[in-house]
C-alpha cells in the first residue's frame, strides 16, 4: 500500500491553521492598523528590551536550577531497579494531572506574607519574610512547573547507560567524580540538551507564573504580549512584533544547542 493521499486533509489543515496564522504574525508585525507597511512595531518592541533581558535571565536561572536538581534524580532513577524507577517516574508525572494554575495558586498560599511558610517561621519568632511578588518566587514557580520536562528526557537517556559501562570505568581506576564527568555526563548529553530546551522555551514565554507569583513588578515577555492582545493596551500589531522577537529568540537558542538538527528529534519531543 503506497497511499500518500491520506495525508492531504492534514496537510491542508496544517497550512490553514499552522502556516497561515504564523504568517499573520509576520504580516501584522510589519503593518500598522490601516494595513500599510511600517517598521514602527519592531522599533517599539525595542522599548521592552529590559523585559526581554529579564525574561531570558530568569529562565536561564530556572533552567540551570532544573538541571542541577533534576540530574541527581534522573541518576538515582537510572541506578535503581525498574519497578522503583517506574514508581518515581509516575510520582514525578502525577502532579501534571492537577491543573497547573491551581498548583501555582497553591504556591501563592504557601508563600504569601501571612501564608503557611511565614506562619511556620512565626512560630520561631522569625519573619515575616517577603517571598511572594519577588523574582525568587517567579524562579520557584518556573522550576516547579517545568522540572518534569527536564527529568523525562534525562531519564530516557540515562536509563540506557548500562551498569557495565560504569563498572568498567570503576575497574579501570576512575574516581566517582571522573566516572561522572568522563562517562555519565558525556553519555547523557542528548538528554541534557533536550531538557534545557524543554524547560527554557515555556519558561521564557510564560505569563501566568510571573503574574501569579511575581506581582505587578515582574512582567515578562509573555505578559507584554498578552497585554497587547487581551489587555487594555489592545494593539495586535505591536503584540505580533514582540511575538516575532520571542520566536526568533527561541529559534536561535534551539539552533545554537543543535536541537533542530538532531536526527532523533521525534524521540526527543515525545
Amino acid at each position: 500500500m503506497r497511499v500518500k493521499a491520506s495525508s492531504y486533509p492534514y496537510v491542508a489543515w496544517a497550512l490553514l491553521f499552522v502556516a497561515i496564522p504564523l504568517g499573520l504574525i509576520v504580516y501584522f508585525s510589519f503593518t500598522d492598523a490601516a494595513g500599510s507597511f511600517t517598521l514602527d512595531n519592531i522599533i517599539q518592541a525595542g522599548i521592552y528590551s529590559n523585559v526581554i533581558i529579564k525574561s531570558v535571565w530568569l529562565s536561564v536561572i530556572s533552567t540551570v536550577i532544573c538541571l542541577l536538581l533534576g540530574y541527581p534524580l534522573a541518576y538515582i532513577m537510572s541506578r535503581s531497579n525498574p519497578i522503583t524507577a517506574r514508581t518515581i517516574l509516575l510520582l514525578v508525572m502525577l502532579p501534571m494531572w492537577m491543573n497547573f494554575l491551581l498548583r501555582t495558586y497553591g504556591w501563592m498560599t504557601i508563600l504569601e506574607n501571612n501564608g503557611i511558610l511565614n506562619q511556620f517561621f512565626g512560630l520561631f519568632g522569625l519573619g515575616p519574610f517577603e517571598m511572594i511578588n519577588t523574582q525568587g518566587a517567579v524562579v520557584l514557580g518556573m522550576v516547579y512547573n517545568y522540572i518534569p520536562f527536564m527529568i523525562l528526557p534525562l531519564h530516557s537517556v540515562m536509563s540506557k547507560i548500562g551498569n557495565d559501562v560504569i563498572e568498567a570505568a570503576q575497574d579501570l581506576g576512575a574516581s566517582p567524580i571522573s566516572v561522572l564527568s568522563e562517562v555519565v555526563v558525556p553519555l547523557s548529553m542528548p538528554g541534557i540538551k533536550t531538557g534545557i530546551i524543554m524547560v527554557f522555551v515555556p519558561a521564557v514565554s510564560t505569563f501566568i507564573i510571573s503574574q501569579m507569583l511575581g506581582g505587578g513588578g515582574n512582567q515578562l515577555i509573555g505578559d507584554i504580549i498578552e497585554l497587547q492582545f487581551l489587555g487594555n493596551a489592545y494593539n495586535p500589531n505591536l503584540g505580533s512584533a514582540i511575538s516575532l522577537v520571542l520566536m526568533v529568540l527561541v529559534l536561535m537558542v534551539m539552533s545554537v544547542s543543535g536541537f533542530l538538527s538532531d536526527d532523533n528529534l521525534e524521540e526527543r519531543v515525545l
Binding site: 496544517a14 499552522v18 530546551i197 515555556p202 492582545f229 495586535p236 511575538s243
Partner: peptide
C-alpha cells in the same frame, strides 16, 4: 516540509500558537 509543519506547534512557545490563532480568527 510536512514534518516541519508538524513539529512547529510542539516546539513553538504556547503563547505564540495562541496569539497566531487569535489573529487568524480575528481576520
Amino acid at each position: 516540509g510536512i514534518m516541519g509543519m508538524t513539529y512547529l506547534p510542539i516546539i513553538n512557545p504556547e503563547i505564540i500558537t495562541g496569539v497566531s490563532f487569535m489573529l487568524l480568527f480575528v481576520v
